[in-house]
Amino acid sequence: MPLIAQFLIGLLFGSGLVISGMSNPEKVLNFLDLAAIPSGGWDPSLALVMAGGAVVTFLGYKLILKRERPLFDTQFHLSQVKNIDAPIIVGPAIFGAGWGLAGFCPGPAFTAIGTGSTSAILFVIAMLAGMVAARLLALRQQRIAAPGAAK
């Protein structure tokens, strides 16, 4: 049952990406291309996707986190890390470079695989390699120790 729930939640998340057009890298890149604003080529859609997602999540979390525990686990896993350290700037800077290069970020890249896109498959293989390398390096530095420290 928990597994089926996870699958269906992933399916809903992926469907949100498809419906919002975020599984199309062209649409993402057209948002990031601020220089296209004067010519009318800018596509602000991504801002509304993120705003819509964040508002719903903000309200939903308020309700859910009042409960003692989630349905299938004994506790909520939230990051206890609060300080602004080097990795919280260096990591996203590197991530943003990769995102801006191809227009894929992790969620949409997985979703794009489902359309049979060989570009997405290539991107995801490299992405997973990069992810595993970063995690192993961080674990060696004992940085990702607390559960939920990495989202």
């Binding site: 998340f13 993120m50 990051s79 890390v81 990795p87 919280i88 700037i89 260096v90 990591g91 996203p92 800077a93 590197i94 991530f95 943003g96 470079a97 990769g98 995102w99 290069l101 191809a102 894929f104 970020c105 992790p106 969620g107 890249a109 570009s119 290539l122 991107f123 995801v124 293989i125 490299a126 992405m127 997973l128 390699a129 990069g130 992810m131 595993v132 390398a133 970063a134 995690r135 390096l137 961080a138 990702i144 420290a149 990495a150 989202k151």
Partner: peptide
Amino acid sequence: LITAGLLAGFGAVWGSGCTS
């Protein structure tokens, strides 16, 4: 695509998260 994937993957995990 491969360069972008490596960067996005490494940076997302190094920075404790991505767009989602």
